[in-house]
Amino acid sequence: MSEAALSSAESQSLHRIAGMMIPASAEYDIPGADDRLIFADIVGSFGRDLGDVRTALAALSTLAGGSFADLDEARAASLLEQFLASGSTSTSVLGRVILQCYYRDDRVLRSLGLESRPPFPKGHTLEQGDWSLLDAVRARPKLWRDDRKVLR
């Protein structure tokens, strides 16, 4: 799905929302969701979510009485909080669309101590653990009911 799927006004509103929902952080040295690369990933990844995203943006635009992108900071923050509190399906989808692109960005993953790669083919290492922890369980009598004895 290309960015053209959203109008310019919708795209501007989404860009502002993304940056407010997940802002950049100097403390963690990470971009916000309005970062150029991440935002391009978001608008390129709507797929079957496009309808819900547009519904969410339309609802926010109605709340704003016009373009959300043009609101002053205080008003935008207040409206976004109200919008997110609505708990609608389209709001949840909008949030997920942003999150699923943000948390696959190389820079974000590195800041979390994760390798930026698919799980396959490298996989991961998992320690066996201490199987002697089972000793206490092994000593227990059986827990299951044997119908052959109970119903004899």
Binding site: L80, R96, L112
Partner: peptide, 22 residues
Amino acid sequence: GPVNEAVTSVAAGRLPWGMDHH
């Protein structure tokens, strides 16, 4: 995974949006 942790935690109300998100 990182995406599902974020999505489910937002839905459960334990992960906020905004500056405290990170």
